[in-house]
Amino acid sequence: MTGAAAALTVTLAAGALAAPASAATPRPGHGDHRHEATQGALDGIVAEGVPGVTAQVRDKYGSWNAASGVGDLRRGTPRGKHDSFRVGSITKTFVATVLLQLQAEGRIDLDDTVGKWLPGVVEGNEHDGDAITVRQILNQTSGIADYSRDDEFSRKVFSTEFFKHRYDTWTPEQLVKLAMRNKRVFEPGKGWGYSNTNYVVAGMIIKKVTGNAYGDEIERRVIEPLDLKATIAPGTRATMPRPSSRAYGKLPLDPEAKTYDVTELNPSFASSAGEVISDSADLNRFYSALLGGRLLPKEQLAEMKDTVSRGEDRGGRYGLGLIELTLPCKGTVKRTVWGHDGDLHGSSNLAVTTEDGSHSLALNMNGDWAGDADPVAEAEFCGK
């Protein structure tokens, strides 16, 4: 999920920060000199105070894997170049891809109402599922309240009460009901507002249409065809697969702003809005295949890339689970990349690729209180 509290960036357990150390050094002769600026930007993230960062670039020359900083603050071990991590809202692109595939198969129309598939689910406090389309939940123009802003949810997830609830299981139905306790943000189609509830509803629609959990459909339609060995929808699984590093962050509602280790947690509170686990290599393969036309017919890919403004404060434009981002390169040259960002419990991520899918970057920071991924994207794509 993405953004501050609304993005569910939460954290757990202790440890003093260790001195950062770069875990990747460019080696002339292996093509790494082409990524010196990118490596410098990764090191810069660590210099800002993030424990560690892992990344991969994939282009016509092959794959370049890098890391910087620390993966485990207590042990002082370096960040791994091939770590798995929680991708947060990057999950949304996977979910949107499945729904667009279902549309291509004639099993659903994106202009169907939510009420057609989930009657009575999106109701209350001005919400009306019969007035909201599937397309509007995918491009965040539905006006549905974000459950992660609900007071009860915030208390259990963003305050120190999290320690009591880190292994709780949340059902999609529970999460949507939390959202319905809050007033609609705007009339459907009359604004743009990031809401994790939209993609919980999307996951519920996938199950209604197919009879299968959204994660099972992602596995069958995306993970298996692309051979994404590190990608899973974990459901209620609290532990991380290996290899992986520890994830650190600060609870937004903790007045002491301590740093905690939140590596283990039940990710069901993120559901189909942000629970997927993957690694940089898999994310690059996914976005490269998606933008390269291997997962969707031309018509559906064009619909996915039909964007609306996210507002001046956020920048970029939002399609159907896909962000169009124009990088502010020096001079008059601009570079446009497509992908998504995501944050979840001590895990901050960015995965982007060029429009033809030929040049991709994916990275993860194992800390959520500092660090900016944009300079890494600019270093990798600007001037190339």
Rank of each mutant, 00 (worst) to 15 (best):
Q174R: 13
D279F: 06
H165D: 01
L175Y: 05
V134A: 12
E152W: 14
R184F: 08
P188Q: 09
Y61N: 12
Q103F: 08
G293Y: 13
I277D: 06
R27S: 10
G319M: 01
A302W: 08
Q174D: 12
K183P: 10
N284F: 09
V70N: 05
D254A: 09
L226P: 05
Y287S: 06
A55V: 10
N366F: 05
V376L: 10
V376C: 07
K258P: 01
A145L: 08
A273E: 05
V46T: 12
A179V: 04
G31M: 01
G88W: 02
E380N: 13
A14P: 14
P28F: 02
R246W: 03
P28M: 11
G211E: 10
W369Y: 14
E355H: 15
T336S: 11
E126P: 03
S347T: 03
K298N: 11
G215C: 03
D32Y: 07
S159G: 06
Y318E: 05
V185T: 07
L12K: 12
L251C: 02
L363R: 03
R74L: 12
S244T: 04
T263F: 01
T197H: 02
E161N: 04
L325N: 01
V70F: 09
T236C: 08
P20R: 07
M304F: 02
K164I: 04
A24H: 14
A238K: 06
E303H: 11
T54K: 05
D254M: 11
A13H: 03
V276D: 05
